[in-house]
Design a protein around this nucleic acid. Structure first.
Lengths: 209, 209
DNA sequence: TTCTCCATACTACTGGGTATGATGTCATCC
DNA sequence: GGATGACATCATACCCAGTAGTATGGAGAA
Protein backbone atom coordinates (compact mmCIF):
# COMPACT_ATOMS: atom_id res chain seq x y z
CA UNK A 1 0.00 0.00 0.00
CA UNK A 2 1.82 3.06 -1.17
CA UNK A 3 0.22 5.14 -3.85
CA UNK A 4 -3.25 3.93 -4.62
CA UNK A 5 -5.12 1.17 -2.80
CA UNK A 6 -8.70 2.26 -2.51
CA UNK A 7 -8.09 5.95 -2.26
CA UNK A 8 -10.23 8.31 -4.23
CA UNK A 9 -9.91 10.86 -6.99
CA UNK A 10 -7.62 9.51 -9.60
CA UNK A 11 -5.11 7.00 -8.36
CA UNK A 12 -2.83 7.28 -11.34
CA UNK A 13 -3.27 6.63 -15.01
CA UNK A 14 -4.80 3.17 -14.69
CA UNK A 15 -7.16 4.39 -12.04
CA UNK A 16 -8.48 6.94 -14.47
CA UNK A 17 -9.27 4.21 -16.96
CA UNK A 18 -11.28 2.40 -14.33
CA UNK A 19 -13.14 5.61 -13.60
CA UNK A 20 -13.91 6.23 -17.26
CA UNK A 21 -15.21 2.72 -17.74
CA UNK A 22 -17.39 3.01 -14.66
CA UNK A 23 -18.80 6.32 -15.86
CA UNK A 24 -19.58 4.83 -19.26
CA UNK A 25 -21.46 1.84 -17.88
CA UNK A 26 -23.19 3.81 -15.14
CA UNK A 27 -24.42 6.27 -17.73
CA UNK A 28 -25.73 3.50 -19.94
CA UNK A 29 -27.36 1.16 -17.42
CA UNK A 30 -27.68 3.14 -14.24
CA UNK A 31 -25.79 2.68 -11.00
CA UNK A 32 -27.93 0.05 -9.32
CA UNK A 33 -28.30 -2.02 -12.48
CA UNK A 34 -24.56 -2.07 -13.04
CA UNK A 35 -22.48 -4.85 -11.54
CA UNK A 36 -18.78 -4.55 -10.92
CA UNK A 37 -18.31 -7.41 -13.35
CA UNK A 38 -19.95 -5.23 -16.01
CA UNK A 39 -17.34 -2.56 -15.45
CA UNK A 40 -14.59 -5.15 -15.42
CA UNK A 41 -15.83 -6.49 -18.74
CA UNK A 42 -15.77 -2.98 -20.17
CA UNK A 43 -12.11 -2.92 -19.24
CA UNK A 44 -11.35 -6.44 -20.40
CA UNK A 45 -10.32 -7.26 -16.86
CA UNK A 46 -11.73 -8.59 -13.60
CA UNK A 47 -12.95 -7.20 -10.33
CA UNK A 48 -9.46 -7.45 -8.91
CA UNK A 49 -8.44 -4.46 -10.95
CA UNK A 50 -11.31 -2.37 -9.68
CA UNK A 51 -10.87 -3.21 -6.03
CA UNK A 52 -7.21 -2.44 -6.29
CA UNK A 53 -8.03 1.16 -7.14
CA UNK A 54 -11.32 1.66 -5.32
CA UNK A 55 -12.51 0.32 -2.05
CA UNK A 56 -16.18 0.02 -2.90
CA UNK A 57 -18.78 0.49 -5.58
CA UNK A 58 -20.15 3.56 -3.83
CA UNK A 59 -16.69 5.09 -3.70
CA UNK A 60 -16.39 4.57 -7.43
CA UNK A 61 -19.69 6.30 -8.03
CA UNK A 62 -18.74 9.19 -5.79
CA UNK A 63 -15.59 9.72 -7.80
CA UNK A 64 -17.53 9.76 -11.05
CA UNK A 65 -20.02 12.24 -9.64
CA UNK A 66 -17.37 14.50 -8.17
CA UNK A 67 -15.31 14.49 -11.33
CA UNK A 68 -18.34 15.27 -13.47
CA UNK A 69 -19.55 18.02 -11.17
CA UNK A 70 -16.13 19.68 -11.15
CA UNK A 71 -15.89 19.60 -14.92
CA UNK A 72 -19.27 21.25 -15.24
CA UNK A 73 -18.84 23.83 -12.53
CA UNK A 74 -15.32 24.81 -13.46
CA UNK A 75 -16.45 25.50 -17.00
CA UNK A 76 -19.42 27.57 -15.96
CA UNK A 77 -17.70 29.39 -13.13
CA UNK A 78 -15.04 30.77 -15.37
CA UNK A 79 -17.71 32.50 -17.44
CA UNK A 80 -19.79 33.52 -14.46
CA UNK A 81 -16.85 35.47 -13.05
CA UNK A 82 -16.16 37.40 -16.20
CA UNK A 83 -17.57 40.88 -16.45
CA UNK A 84 -19.68 42.50 -19.11
CA UNK A 85 -23.34 42.39 -20.01
CA UNK A 86 -25.21 40.07 -17.61
CA UNK A 87 -27.47 38.85 -20.37
CA UNK A 88 -24.55 37.88 -22.57
CA UNK A 89 -22.90 36.20 -19.62
CA UNK A 90 -26.00 34.19 -18.84
CA UNK A 91 -26.22 33.14 -22.46
CA UNK A 92 -22.60 32.02 -22.44
CA UNK A 93 -23.03 30.09 -19.20
CA UNK A 94 -26.02 28.23 -20.53
CA UNK A 95 -24.26 27.45 -23.77
CA UNK A 96 -21.24 26.13 -21.93
CA UNK A 97 -23.42 24.02 -19.65
CA UNK A 98 -25.07 22.38 -22.63
CA UNK A 99 -21.82 21.98 -24.50
CA UNK A 100 -20.20 20.14 -21.59
CA UNK A 101 -23.28 17.96 -21.21
CA UNK A 102 -22.99 16.89 -24.83
CA UNK A 103 -19.23 16.45 -24.72
CA UNK A 104 -18.66 14.75 -21.39
CA UNK A 105 -21.60 12.40 -21.79
CA UNK A 106 -20.54 9.52 -19.57
CA UNK A 107 -19.84 11.61 -16.49
CA UNK A 108 -22.62 14.12 -16.93
CA UNK A 109 -25.27 11.55 -17.64
CA UNK A 110 -24.22 9.49 -14.63
CA UNK A 111 -24.45 12.58 -12.47
CA UNK A 112 -27.86 13.34 -13.87
CA UNK A 113 -29.18 9.83 -13.36
CA UNK A 114 -28.02 9.50 -9.80
CA UNK A 115 -29.19 12.91 -8.71
CA UNK A 116 -32.51 11.79 -7.24
CA UNK A 117 -30.72 9.04 -5.33
CA UNK A 118 -28.19 11.37 -3.85
CA UNK A 119 -30.90 13.77 -2.84
CA UNK A 120 -32.53 10.91 -1.01
CA UNK A 121 -29.28 9.80 0.59
CA UNK A 122 -28.67 13.38 1.76
CA UNK A 123 -27.48 12.60 5.26
CA UNK A 124 -28.36 8.90 5.24
CA UNK A 125 -24.91 7.81 4.21
CA UNK A 126 -21.61 7.92 6.06
CA UNK A 127 -19.36 9.25 3.35
CA UNK A 128 -19.05 12.98 3.77
CA UNK A 129 -18.35 13.36 0.09
CA UNK A 130 -22.09 13.31 -0.51
CA UNK A 131 -22.20 16.53 1.40
CA UNK A 132 -19.42 18.02 -0.71
CA UNK A 133 -21.37 17.15 -3.81
CA UNK A 134 -24.42 18.87 -2.47
CA UNK A 135 -22.38 22.02 -1.92
CA UNK A 136 -21.08 21.91 -5.48
CA UNK A 137 -24.60 21.72 -6.84
CA UNK A 138 -25.72 24.53 -4.61
CA UNK A 139 -22.88 26.69 -5.86
CA UNK A 140 -23.82 25.87 -9.41
CA UNK A 141 -27.44 26.84 -8.91
CA UNK A 142 -26.29 29.92 -7.04
CA UNK A 143 -24.18 31.12 -9.96
CA UNK A 144 -27.16 30.98 -12.26
CA UNK A 145 -29.36 32.64 -9.72
CA UNK A 146 -26.91 35.50 -9.31
CA UNK A 147 -26.76 36.23 -13.00
CA UNK A 148 -30.51 36.07 -13.26
CA UNK A 149 -30.82 38.70 -10.58
CA UNK A 150 -28.32 40.90 -12.37
CA UNK A 151 -30.33 40.59 -15.56
CA UNK A 152 -33.51 41.52 -13.74
CA UNK A 153 -31.84 44.50 -12.13
CA UNK A 154 -30.57 45.69 -15.46
CA UNK A 155 -34.12 45.59 -16.71
CA UNK A 156 -35.20 47.72 -13.79
CA UNK A 157 -37.39 45.04 -12.29
CA UNK A 158 -37.90 44.73 -8.56
CA UNK A 159 -36.34 41.58 -7.15
CA UNK A 160 -38.74 40.71 -4.37
CA UNK A 161 -41.63 40.34 -6.77
CA UNK A 162 -39.83 37.57 -8.67
CA UNK A 163 -39.01 34.07 -7.46
CA UNK A 164 -35.47 33.88 -8.79
CA UNK A 165 -34.80 30.56 -7.12
CA UNK A 166 -37.58 28.88 -9.05
CA UNK A 167 -36.41 30.60 -12.22
CA UNK A 168 -32.89 29.26 -11.73
CA UNK A 169 -34.25 25.78 -11.17
CA UNK A 170 -36.41 25.93 -14.24
CA UNK A 171 -33.41 27.07 -16.19
CA UNK A 172 -31.20 24.24 -14.97
CA UNK A 173 -33.98 21.81 -15.75
CA UNK A 174 -34.12 22.96 -19.34
CA UNK A 175 -30.36 22.58 -19.66
CA UNK A 176 -29.99 19.31 -17.76
CA UNK A 177 -32.78 17.71 -19.72
CA UNK A 178 -30.29 17.36 -22.55
CA UNK A 179 -28.96 14.38 -20.64
CA UNK A 180 -32.21 12.57 -21.30
CA UNK A 181 -32.75 13.08 -25.01
CA UNK A 182 -29.33 13.77 -26.48
CA UNK A 183 -27.86 11.05 -28.69
CA UNK A 184 -24.46 11.54 -30.21
CA UNK A 185 -25.18 9.64 -33.39
CA UNK A 186 -28.38 11.53 -34.07
CA UNK A 187 -27.91 15.05 -32.75
CA UNK A 188 -24.86 16.26 -34.62
CA UNK A 189 -25.28 20.00 -34.39
CA UNK A 190 -23.99 20.55 -30.87
CA UNK A 191 -23.47 24.28 -31.23
CA UNK A 192 -26.87 24.81 -32.77
CA UNK A 193 -28.62 23.00 -29.94
CA UNK A 194 -26.58 24.86 -27.36
CA UNK A 195 -27.52 28.16 -28.97
CA UNK A 196 -31.20 27.31 -29.14
CA UNK A 197 -31.35 26.33 -25.50
CA UNK A 198 -29.28 29.30 -24.40
CA UNK A 199 -31.65 31.65 -26.21
CA UNK A 200 -34.59 29.87 -24.67
CA UNK A 201 -33.45 30.35 -21.09
CA UNK A 202 -32.28 33.92 -21.62
CA UNK A 203 -35.63 34.83 -23.12
CA UNK A 204 -37.26 33.01 -20.23
CA UNK A 205 -36.07 35.67 -17.83
CA UNK A 206 -36.62 38.50 -20.32
CA UNK A 207 -40.35 39.17 -20.62
CA UNK A 208 -41.61 41.46 -23.29
CA UNK A 209 -42.20 45.01 -22.15
CA UNK B 1 -58.28 -17.26 -10.96
CA UNK B 2 -61.23 -15.14 -11.84
CA UNK B 3 -60.90 -11.41 -11.52
CA UNK B 4 -57.36 -10.39 -10.78
CA UNK B 5 -54.35 -12.72 -10.63
CA UNK B 6 -51.45 -10.84 -12.08
CA UNK B 7 -53.30 -8.82 -14.63
CA UNK B 8 -52.51 -5.18 -15.03
CA UNK B 9 -54.11 -1.77 -14.64
CA UNK B 10 -56.07 -1.77 -11.45
CA UNK B 11 -57.26 -5.17 -10.40
CA UNK B 12 -59.88 -3.88 -8.02
CA UNK B 13 -59.75 -1.72 -4.94
CA UNK B 14 -57.02 -3.64 -3.15
CA UNK B 15 -54.92 -3.72 -6.28
CA UNK B 16 -54.97 0.03 -6.34
CA UNK B 17 -53.59 0.16 -2.82
CA UNK B 18 -50.70 -2.04 -3.90
CA UNK B 19 -50.07 0.26 -6.83
CA UNK B 20 -50.12 3.36 -4.65
CA UNK B 21 -47.70 1.83 -2.18
CA UNK B 22 -45.36 0.80 -4.98
CA UNK B 23 -45.46 4.27 -6.48
CA UNK B 24 -44.66 5.81 -3.11
CA UNK B 25 -41.64 3.61 -2.44
CA UNK B 26 -40.38 3.74 -6.03
CA UNK B 27 -40.53 7.52 -5.91
CA UNK B 28 -38.62 7.60 -2.65
CA UNK B 29 -35.90 5.00 -3.22
CA UNK B 30 -35.90 4.34 -6.93
CA UNK B 31 -37.01 1.21 -8.74
CA UNK B 32 -33.82 -0.83 -8.56
CA UNK B 33 -33.16 0.04 -4.93
CA UNK B 34 -36.67 -0.99 -3.92
CA UNK B 35 -37.34 -4.58 -2.89
CA UNK B 36 -40.76 -6.14 -2.98
CA UNK B 37 -40.44 -6.59 0.75
CA UNK B 38 -40.13 -2.81 1.04
CA UNK B 39 -43.44 -2.38 -0.74
CA UNK B 40 -45.01 -5.10 1.35
CA UNK B 41 -43.83 -3.33 4.51
CA UNK B 42 -45.39 -0.12 3.28
CA UNK B 43 -48.66 -2.04 3.10
CA UNK B 44 -48.20 -3.86 6.38
CA UNK B 45 -48.32 -7.12 4.46
CA UNK B 46 -46.07 -9.62 2.71
CA UNK B 47 -45.02 -10.44 -0.81
CA UNK B 48 -47.95 -12.78 -1.16
CA UNK B 49 -50.28 -9.84 -1.44
CA UNK B 50 -48.24 -8.23 -4.19
CA UNK B 51 -47.84 -11.34 -6.27
CA UNK B 52 -51.52 -12.00 -6.04
CA UNK B 53 -52.22 -8.76 -7.89
CA UNK B 54 -49.14 -8.45 -10.09
CA UNK B 55 -47.12 -11.08 -11.80
CA UNK B 56 -43.74 -9.38 -11.55
CA UNK B 57 -41.90 -6.36 -10.26
CA UNK B 58 -41.53 -5.00 -13.76
CA UNK B 59 -45.27 -5.30 -14.35
CA UNK B 60 -45.86 -3.30 -11.20
CA UNK B 61 -43.53 -0.57 -12.41
CA UNK B 62 -45.17 -0.49 -15.80
CA UNK B 63 -48.53 0.04 -14.19
CA UNK B 64 -47.21 2.92 -12.13
CA UNK B 65 -45.64 4.52 -15.16
CA UNK B 66 -48.69 4.10 -17.35
CA UNK B 67 -51.02 5.44 -14.70
CA UNK B 68 -48.82 8.45 -14.10
CA UNK B 69 -48.38 9.19 -17.78
CA UNK B 70 -52.11 9.05 -18.39
CA UNK B 71 -52.83 11.41 -15.52
CA UNK B 72 -50.34 13.91 -16.87
CA UNK B 73 -51.28 13.67 -20.51
CA UNK B 74 -55.02 13.69 -19.96
CA UNK B 75 -54.71 16.88 -17.97
CA UNK B 76 -52.57 18.63 -20.55
CA UNK B 77 -54.41 17.35 -23.60
CA UNK B 78 -57.69 18.80 -22.46
CA UNK B 79 -56.13 22.26 -22.46
CA UNK B 80 -54.16 21.71 -25.64
CA UNK B 81 -57.36 21.00 -27.55
CA UNK B 82 -59.15 24.12 -26.39
CA UNK B 83 -59.12 27.10 -28.70
CA UNK B 84 -58.12 30.66 -28.12
CA UNK B 85 -54.83 32.52 -27.89
CA UNK B 86 -51.93 30.07 -28.39
CA UNK B 87 -49.77 31.86 -25.86
CA UNK B 88 -52.45 31.65 -23.19
CA UNK B 89 -52.96 28.01 -24.05
CA UNK B 90 -49.26 27.27 -23.70
CA UNK B 91 -49.19 29.03 -20.38
CA UNK B 92 -52.14 26.99 -19.14
CA UNK B 93 -50.59 23.73 -20.32
CA UNK B 94 -47.34 24.45 -18.54
CA UNK B 95 -49.16 25.43 -15.38
CA UNK B 96 -51.20 22.26 -15.43
CA UNK B 97 -48.12 20.14 -16.03
CA UNK B 98 -46.42 21.61 -12.98
CA UNK B 99 -49.55 21.41 -10.88
CA UNK B 100 -49.97 17.70 -11.59
CA UNK B 101 -46.30 17.11 -10.86
CA UNK B 102 -46.69 18.69 -7.44
CA UNK B 103 -49.98 16.98 -6.70
CA UNK B 104 -49.43 13.45 -7.96
CA UNK B 105 -45.92 13.22 -6.53
CA UNK B 106 -45.53 9.46 -6.11
CA UNK B 107 -46.52 8.56 -9.67
CA UNK B 108 -44.92 11.52 -11.42
CA UNK B 109 -41.65 11.24 -9.57
CA UNK B 110 -41.45 7.51 -10.29
CA UNK B 111 -42.06 8.21 -13.95
CA UNK B 112 -39.38 10.85 -13.92
CA UNK B 113 -36.82 8.68 -12.17
CA UNK B 114 -37.28 5.68 -14.41
CA UNK B 115 -37.27 7.64 -17.63
CA UNK B 116 -33.59 7.08 -18.44
CA UNK B 117 -33.97 3.39 -17.76
CA UNK B 118 -36.97 3.04 -20.01
CA UNK B 119 -35.17 4.93 -22.76
CA UNK B 120 -32.37 2.43 -22.44
CA UNK B 121 -34.75 -0.53 -22.41
CA UNK B 122 -36.43 0.81 -25.54
CA UNK B 123 -36.79 -2.45 -27.43
CA UNK B 124 -34.65 -4.54 -25.12
CA UNK B 125 -37.61 -5.80 -23.15
CA UNK B 126 -40.42 -8.13 -24.11
CA UNK B 127 -43.36 -6.27 -22.68
CA UNK B 128 -44.94 -4.19 -25.41
CA UNK B 129 -46.22 -1.74 -22.82
CA UNK B 130 -42.85 -0.04 -22.91
CA UNK B 131 -43.64 0.87 -26.47
CA UNK B 132 -47.03 2.27 -25.49
CA UNK B 133 -45.34 4.43 -22.91
CA UNK B 134 -42.97 5.76 -25.48
CA UNK B 135 -45.90 6.76 -27.67
CA UNK B 136 -47.55 8.57 -24.78
CA UNK B 137 -44.41 10.59 -24.15
CA UNK B 138 -44.07 11.37 -27.82
CA UNK B 139 -47.63 12.63 -27.92
CA UNK B 140 -46.98 14.75 -24.88
CA UNK B 141 -43.92 16.35 -26.40
CA UNK B 142 -45.81 16.76 -29.66
CA UNK B 143 -48.57 18.72 -28.01
CA UNK B 144 -46.11 21.22 -26.63
CA UNK B 145 -44.31 21.42 -29.91
CA UNK B 146 -47.53 22.17 -31.76
CA UNK B 147 -48.47 25.03 -29.48
CA UNK B 148 -44.97 26.44 -29.71
CA UNK B 149 -45.25 26.52 -33.48
CA UNK B 150 -48.59 28.26 -33.25
CA UNK B 151 -47.08 30.87 -30.99
CA UNK B 152 -44.22 31.42 -33.40
CA UNK B 153 -46.59 31.74 -36.32
CA UNK B 154 -48.68 34.26 -34.47
CA UNK B 155 -45.53 36.29 -33.98
CA UNK B 156 -44.90 36.15 -37.69
CA UNK B 157 -41.69 34.18 -37.34
CA UNK B 158 -40.58 31.70 -39.96
CA UNK B 159 -40.69 28.12 -38.69
CA UNK B 160 -37.76 26.58 -40.49
CA UNK B 161 -35.31 28.96 -38.88
CA UNK B 162 -36.24 27.75 -35.41
CA UNK B 163 -35.59 24.33 -33.88
CA UNK B 164 -38.97 23.82 -32.27
CA UNK B 165 -38.15 20.28 -31.20
CA UNK B 166 -35.28 21.43 -29.07
CA UNK B 167 -37.42 24.24 -27.72
CA UNK B 168 -40.12 21.77 -26.70
CA UNK B 169 -37.54 19.60 -25.00
CA UNK B 170 -36.04 22.49 -23.14
CA UNK B 171 -39.49 23.45 -22.04
CA UNK B 172 -40.35 20.01 -20.76
CA UNK B 173 -37.02 19.89 -18.98
CA UNK B 174 -37.80 23.07 -17.10
CA UNK B 175 -41.19 21.68 -16.07
CA UNK B 176 -40.10 18.14 -15.28
CA UNK B 177 -37.22 19.36 -13.17
CA UNK B 178 -39.79 20.10 -10.50
CA UNK B 179 -39.69 16.40 -9.75
CA UNK B 180 -36.14 16.80 -8.53
CA UNK B 181 -36.34 19.75 -6.21
CA UNK B 182 -39.95 19.97 -5.08
CA UNK B 183 -40.64 19.10 -1.45
CA UNK B 184 -44.17 19.22 -0.17
CA UNK B 185 -43.30 20.29 3.34
CA UNK B 186 -41.12 23.14 2.14
CA UNK B 187 -42.62 24.45 -1.10
CA UNK B 188 -46.12 25.36 -0.07
CA UNK B 189 -47.07 27.85 -2.77
CA UNK B 190 -47.94 25.42 -5.55
CA UNK B 191 -49.82 27.96 -7.67
CA UNK B 192 -47.08 30.54 -7.35
CA UNK B 193 -44.42 28.11 -8.49
CA UNK B 194 -46.59 26.91 -11.35
CA UNK B 195 -47.14 30.50 -12.46
CA UNK B 196 -43.45 31.36 -12.30
CA UNK B 197 -42.45 28.37 -14.36
CA UNK B 198 -45.27 28.87 -16.84
CA UNK B 199 -44.16 32.46 -17.39
CA UNK B 200 -40.60 31.32 -17.78
CA UNK B 201 -41.32 28.87 -20.58
CA UNK B 202 -43.75 31.17 -22.37
CA UNK B 203 -41.19 33.95 -22.33
CA UNK B 204 -38.63 31.43 -23.49
CA UNK B 205 -40.33 31.18 -26.87
CA UNK B 206 -41.20 34.88 -26.97
CA UNK B 207 -38.04 36.86 -27.72
CA UNK B 208 -38.07 40.58 -27.43
CA UNK B 209 -38.66 42.37 -30.71
C1' DT C 1 13.52 -10.00 -1.44
C1' DT C 2 9.81 -6.95 -1.43
C1' DC C 3 6.16 -4.51 -3.09
C1' DT C 4 2.84 -3.24 -6.76
C1' DC C 5 -0.71 -4.75 -9.68
C1' DC C 6 -4.00 -7.70 -10.76
C1' DA C 7 -6.48 -12.57 -11.63
C1' DT C 8 -8.74 -16.47 -9.46
C1' DA C 9 -11.60 -18.54 -6.39
C1' DC C 10 -14.49 -18.15 -2.79
C1' DT C 11 -17.97 -16.39 0.75
C1' DA C 12 -22.13 -14.31 2.35
C1' DC C 13 -26.21 -12.22 1.55
C1' DT C 14 -29.93 -9.91 -0.84
C1' DG C 15 -33.93 -10.24 -3.29
C1' DG C 16 -37.14 -11.86 -7.20
C1' DG C 17 -39.95 -15.49 -7.83
C1' DT C 18 -42.58 -19.94 -6.51
C1' DA C 19 -44.97 -23.70 -4.01
C1' DT C 20 -48.06 -24.49 -0.67
C1' DG C 21 -51.42 -24.02 2.65
C1' DA C 22 -54.48 -21.39 5.86
C1' DT C 23 -58.61 -18.46 6.11
C1' DG C 24 -62.67 -16.31 4.81
C1' DT C 25 -66.68 -15.83 1.71
C1' DC C 26 -70.31 -17.07 -1.22
C1' DA C 27 -73.29 -20.10 -3.76
C1' DT C 28 -75.69 -24.23 -4.01
C1' DC C 29 -78.02 -28.35 -2.59
C1' DC C 30 -80.37 -31.14 0.59
C1' DG D 1 -80.86 -23.20 7.28
C1' DG D 2 -77.04 -25.73 7.88
C1' DA D 3 -73.61 -28.34 5.61
C1' DT D 4 -70.44 -28.41 1.80
C1' DG D 5 -67.68 -27.42 -1.92
C1' DA D 6 -65.32 -23.87 -4.73
C1' DC D 7 -62.72 -20.06 -5.19
C1' DA D 8 -60.60 -15.62 -4.07
C1' DT D 9 -57.23 -13.74 -0.97
C1' DC D 10 -53.45 -13.62 1.19
C1' DA D 11 -49.21 -15.49 4.60
C1' DT D 12 -45.31 -18.62 5.14
C1' DA D 13 -41.48 -20.98 3.80
C1' DC D 14 -38.48 -21.96 0.49
C1' DC D 15 -35.37 -21.88 -3.77
C1' DC D 16 -31.73 -19.98 -6.39
C1' DA D 17 -29.41 -16.65 -9.24
C1' DG D 18 -26.89 -12.56 -9.08
C1' DT D 19 -23.55 -9.73 -6.90
C1' DA D 20 -20.66 -6.88 -3.47
C1' DG D 21 -16.80 -7.83 -1.12
C1' DT D 22 -12.58 -10.83 0.48
C1' DA D 23 -8.65 -14.01 0.72
C1' DT D 24 -4.98 -15.54 -1.66
C1' DG D 25 -1.37 -16.05 -4.73
C1' DG D 26 1.31 -15.21 -8.91
C1' DA D 27 4.02 -12.32 -12.22
C1' DG D 28 6.93 -8.68 -12.85
C1' DA D 29 9.64 -4.64 -11.46
C1' DA D 30 12.75 -2.28 -8.31
Amino acid sequence: MSESSGRSIRSGERGREVLDAAAAVFARKGYAQTSLDDIADELGATKGLIYHHYRSKESLLLDVLTTGAKTLIDGVRQIARSDGDPRARLRAMAREHVRITMTDVAYQRTAFRSLPMHVYLARRSVDERWGKLHELRAEHEGMFRDVIEQVLKEDGRTLDSVDTRTLARGMLGALNWVNVWYREERDQDVDGIADTLAEFVVNGVSPRP
